[in-house]
Structure formats: structure tokens, C-alpha cells
Design a protein around this nucleic acid. Structure first.
Lengths: 148, 148
DNA sequence: TTCTTTGCAAAAGATTTGCAAATAC
DNA sequence: GTATTTGCAAATCTTTTGCAAAGAA
């Protein structure tokens, strides 16, 4: 998904049965204004969203940002990517894809769905689950200071 | 790793350059007493560890449990598995393997390393990173209430 | 008007930290 | 005897919640 105008955003929200209030539109605008192309940085924490949405003047409160992000996630408009216990990224790209998280740099990047083969995995998935229901986070560990 | 006696545990801690105090040995004992076989439930939250270590009488404080788990993780004795923003599991099995997390049930299970093929992925890893430095969490999404 | 949403500040839950007392080597 | 570790309670950080005011249909 990639929206430019607030109108498009409002329409998209309605399609997800979300009443497009001005706060919600502003938040969605922040989420979707960065391109969704591979390599584009469209991963934001709640705090980043809060900061960006209020960058020039106060538009939305913290509670509303959190609640709205949760609402967007629950309705499938965006996805939450959990990379560490205190780091949740929100991803406006809901096309099937996965994530690569580099612990040492804190960087999150997309992985095309086809770059990871999970064929061997399917027999242990709950029934009815398809590949598109999988969210994979590949974490690159920093050096593990393992004793030698 | 799989230890039975406190002596074995103390030795293992020393090998990781961790001074084996009684609290640390008790915590390690809790972590390692469950078998490491596939299917065995050896994933515990900090709180579970705290509960189990103090099950019959008070042995270790909460702060010490948290600090010790972090210490164990930093020295590579155990691994932390992040499955959601408020759910970190500790895994006493440090052999290369991955994890499958079922959102709807909250269940975490092991995935043998060879069940996921990441060959396509290697060109986007930082240099010097090998397959053993990857921790993969496959999250099975509940139904995403996606709008139709 | 009636239902929904927002905002604030307080609450909650998980983890960490400061510092004095206890323990280890 | 000196350095390390523990425990408590307070602090911190992120996210959620209660409730009155503001906004939408």
C-alpha cells in the first residue's frame, strides 16, 4: 500500500472499517509516506511515529498514537515486528515478506518471502496455516562472547 | 548442555567465567533441569524462573534472577528468545536451532536448524556472519481480521 | 443527540539500578 | 581483607487504561 493524499488515506481506513478521524489520518500518513520499495526505511517505533506526527506542531497525544497503532495492527492495516523485548517496529508494508534484524546496529530490513524456504517446516504448523501467515524475524546476533 | 548435579553446574559456570554462587547455581539448575530433547519444554520466562527457583522456600530475589539471566545470556550460557514485546523466553539449549511461536496459543517450540533454508539470504548478511549466528523466530499469526 | 474518539495523567508490567549488607576467594 | 554479589525498594521504560471533554454521524 502506498498513499499520498489524505483522501486516499481516509478511503483506505474506511476499507478497513476504521473511522478516519484527523488523528488517525495523520498517523497513517506518517506510516505510509515513506516508500514501500525494498530498501526503503518504512519501519518505525511507536515513539518515532509520535515524534514525526507532531514534528511541527502538536497533533496527536501519545496515548492515541499507541492505541491507533494497535488498532491499525488489529485490522491488518499495518504489521508489528517484534525484534527485542523493548523494541517493536510497525511496518506499513503488509505484503508477504520477512525481516532481518541486526542486533549490533539495531537495523531492520526486509527479506523477500522467497528468500527463506520453510518447506521443511510445514508439518509442524497448526492446520490451516499457510506460508502467508508466517512472520519470520531473522536475528543476526552480535558476537556472543562465548567462552572458549 | 544438560546438567544434573550442582557440581556439574558449578563447573559449567566457571567455564563461562561466571563465579558459581549459590543463587546462580540454583538458577542454572532450574534452567537446565528440563531435558533439552526436541519437544521438551525448556523455554522459561524470567518470572517462571523466579517462581521455580523459589518454589519451596525463598532462595533468590527477583533482581538477582533478572540480573543473572542477563549475565547468563551475555556469556552465551543461555539464549534469549524474543517472541513479543512483553514476552522473552530463555532457552537453555544453545545448539543451533530456531523457534516457532504460535500467537494464538502462546506456544514456543524448537525448529531444527536444517528445517529452514536461508541460502538466498546470505548475500544480505553483514560479513563474517555465519548461519550459526542466526536466530530465527517464525511467528504464526492468529487470524489477521483483515478487511475484505 | 447519541455514539465514538481523544487526551491527560495515572496505572500497569517488565526490567534495571543504587547502595548497603552479605558472601566469595 | 578486598572484590564481587545479593537483595530490597525505588526508578525506568514502554504500553495501557479510566474518565471527562471533544468530535463525528
Amino acid at each position: 500500500m502506498s498513499f499520498q493524499s489524505k483522501n486516499e488515506i481516509a478511503r483506505a481506513l474506511r476499507e478497513h472499517r476504521i473511522q478516519p478521524t484527523s488523528q488517525r489520518v495523520e498517523i497513517a500518513h506518517v506510516l505510509f509516506e515513506r516508500g514501500m520499495e525494498a530498501g526503503a526505511d518504512h519501519h518505525m517505533s511507536a515513539d518515532e511515529v509520535l515524534e514525526r506526527v507532531n514534528a511541527d506542531y502538536h497533533r496527536v497525544s501519545k496515548a492515541t498514537v499507541y492505541n491507533t497503532l494497535r488498532l491499525f495492527e488489529e485490522t491488518g492495516l499495518i504489521r508489528a515486528v517484534v525484534v527485542s523485548s523493548s523494541k517493536v517496529f510497525f511496518d506499513a508494508n503488509t505484503e508477504p515478506h520477512h525481516h532481518l534484524y541486526d542486533e549490533s546496529t539495531g537495523t531492520l530490513q526486509d527479506i523477500p518471502a522467497e528468500d527463506i524456504d520453510t518447506a521443511q517446516l510445514f508439518h509442524k504448523l497448526p492446520e490451516g496455516v499457510s506460508g502467508n501467515d508466517l512472520d519470520i524475524v531473522v536475528r543476526v546476533r552480535g558476537q556472543a562472547t562465548s567462552a572458549g
